[in-house]
Design a protein around this nucleic acid. Sequence first.
DNA 1: GTTATGGTGTAACAAAGGTTACACTATTGA
DNA 2: TCAATAGTGTAACCTTTGTTACACCATAAC
Lengths: 211, 211
Amino acid sequence: MIQELKDNYGHLFEKELINEIAQVGTFKEVPAGFTMMAIGDYIRGVPLLISGAIKVMREDKEGDELLLYYLESGETCSMTMNCCMGHTKSEIKAVAEQDTILIMIPVQKMEEWTTKYKSWRDFVFQSYHNRLNEVLHILDSVAFEKMDQRLVNYLKEKVRINNSNTIQNTHQEIAYDLHSSRVVISRLLKKLEQMGAIELHRNHIKIIDLE
Amino acid sequence: MIQELKDNYGHLFEKELINEIAQVGTFKEVPAGFTMMAIGDYIRGVPLLISGAIKVMREDKEGDELLLYYLESGETCSMTMNCCMGHTKSEIKAVAEQDTILIMIPVQKMEEWTTKYKSWRDFVFQSYHNRLNEVLHILDSVAFEKMDQRLVNYLKEKVRINNSNTIQNTHQEIAYDLHSSRVVISRLLKKLEQMGAIELHRNHIKIIDLE
DNA sequence: GTTATGGTGTAACAAAGGTTACACTATTGA
DNA sequence: TCAATAGTGTAACCTTTGTTACACCATAAC
C-alpha cells in the first residue's frame, strides 16, 4: 500500500503520515457502476482515491438526481468529512464511474491527524476548497446556463474524466445526470450531431469537436 | 472588543484565542446596503460577525446575480477563507443586509491559529461545513424547485433573517436575488396575495402566513 | 401645484424545456 | 427463429418562465 500512497500522495504528505495511513487504512476495489454511498447512509470512513473515478450526485426526495462532480485519484471526499464532522447522515450519493481503487481511513484517525500533521490539515482544507468551488460551478451552470450549454459542458467533462472520445452512455443516463428528460437530451444531441460536433450511436457517443 | 467577542464567540473559542483576536482584530461598522466585497476583489482579511447580517451572492459574467445565503452573528465567511487559502480572487459578492458590526482578522493570523488552537480549527471546519451545506441547498432549490416554491422559501428566509414580518424590498430586488424577472415575481406574488399568504404594498410586503 | 421617476399590474407573446405517444431498430434471450 | 426489451428519433402539445409593452399611481423633485 505504501507504494500507491507515495505515488498518489507523496507530494502532499510527509513520510510519517504516509506510514500511519498505510497502517490503519484498508484497501478497497470498487467495480464501475457500484453505488458506494446512498443518501442517508452513515459514514464509516474517509476515502483516499488511488485510481479510477467516482461520480458524486445530489438527489431530492422524489429521487431526481443531479451530477455534482467527479473525484479523481489523489482526491478525497470532503462531503464525507462534512458528514463525519457534523455526525450527520450522507447528503449525497456516490457511484464508481470507473473501476476504482481507494484506501479507507477510519474517522477517528482523520481527527487525530488534523492536530498532528500540517500536511493533512492542508489537504483537508484544500479538499473543502475544491469541493466548494465545484459545487459553485455546478450552481452557476444550473442557474445561468441553458440546457444545450450544460450538455456540452457535461460531454467535455466526461471526455476528460474517462480520457476517451467515446462516451458510453445512453441518452436516458445523461438525462438523469443533468436532471432533464430523455427526449430533451436526444433533441439537443441530434442538434449537436447536425452541427458536426458529435456522432450518435446506440449506447455510445463519439465526440468529434465540441468547441 | 473583548466583551463582544465573549458574547458571540465565547462558547466557541478559549480565552487565550479571544485575547489574541482582540489584539489583532479591527472593528468595522458597515451600513445596510454597503457592498463589502465584489467579484475579483483581493481579500485582506477574514471577518467575524458581531451583529447584523451579510448577504452573499454569486454573479456570472453578464452581471446576473443569485443569492447564496446570509451570514449572521457568530459566523464567518468561508468563501473568504477559501480565497485566502487558494490565494485567488473573490468569486462572490457580499452586501450588508442590515447595519452590521464585525471584526476583521488578518490572513496570516488565521493560518497561525489553525496550528495553535483546536477551537479555531473546529470553527473553520464548521464554517466550511455550513457553507457547503447551504450552497447545496441553494442548488437543490434551483435545480429541483419551481419559481413559486423558491419565492416562498426566499420570503421565509427574509422573515427569519430580519426578524420581521415586513419585507422591505421591491419586486425588482427580489427578482435579482432569485435570478428571475420583475414581471414573473410580480405575477407569483400576486398569486400568493390572492391565496391570503401575503399583503402587497409599495416598497414592502407583509407576510401573513406562508405555512 | 406640475413633472419626473420608480414601483406595480396586466396582457400578449415567445422560448425553453418537459410530457405523451408512437414508430423503428438493434440486441437479448428463450 | 421469434418475441421481448431497450435505445433512439420525432411530432404534437403543454407548462413554466421570460420578454415587451403599456397603463396607472405614489412619491419626490422642481
